[in-house]
Amino acid sequence: MGEAIVITSGKGGVGKTTTSANIGTALALQGKKVVMVDTDIGLRNLDVVMGLENRIIYDLIDVSDGRCRLAQALIKDKRFEELYLLPAAQTKDKDAITPEKVKKIVGELKKDFEFVIIDCPAGIEQGFKNAVAGADKAIVVTTPENAAVRDADRVIGLLENNGLRGPKLIINRIRQKMLKSGEMLGVDEIVSVLAIDLLGIVPDDEYVIKCANTGEPTVMSPNSRASIAYRNIARRILGDTVPLMRLEDKPGLMTKVKKIFGLG
């Protein structure tokens, strides 16, 4: 029996879909059998970030309405051994499905997959309730901004009401320069307000945006900083102890050379 993890945040645009795609892919890279479920009905985009949009035939609503079997709606990502996507419907709205139906579908998927990664829509209404219905665990994504942290806090309270205790935190889009100058909320500050375990921090990385446009999840590149951050997060989900990423930029070769010659 697998584990269903919902990726949620309250606020939109903080990186739920990006996180879902990258955690799903990173777990698949570790040899796990993974399915990603997009519950952002009407605004689906997990398929776009994964570069699988053109392969969609059936979606989540088709499954719940009985227009197709669950297996027919699953899109296999051919780049990996065992990575699948259950896309959201683009033309319907959030009321087209109920939490009970999502729960049933997620329950079916847990029988076949080790991880079911659920991408949650923004907000705290119907779409949120749908997304969390079948989840065993939750990951809350925030960015270092007051409004995002406030919404994350709200969502943590709601998750607890839904029986999802001890959600884990990811702080996304951290900018080293702004952190240093004190223009951005610090990691410690955010963790002390939200008072939940930190699963990882992800730097703001242009490469993420580039990848979103080419349909290649960031973690597929071994070098980008965001990629390393997501790989670390996946390893922590699997139970490894991986130290938090050092935020300071590594001194480049030139600065090292300059130091040697007493120029830095």
């Binding site: 919404d151 806090d153 709200r154 943590i156 709601l158």
Partner: peptide, 13 residues
Amino acid sequence: GITVKRGIVRSGQ
């Protein structure tokens, strides 16, 4: 005469 409570009162609560 003091009620003792504990926990976190989160946003919206």
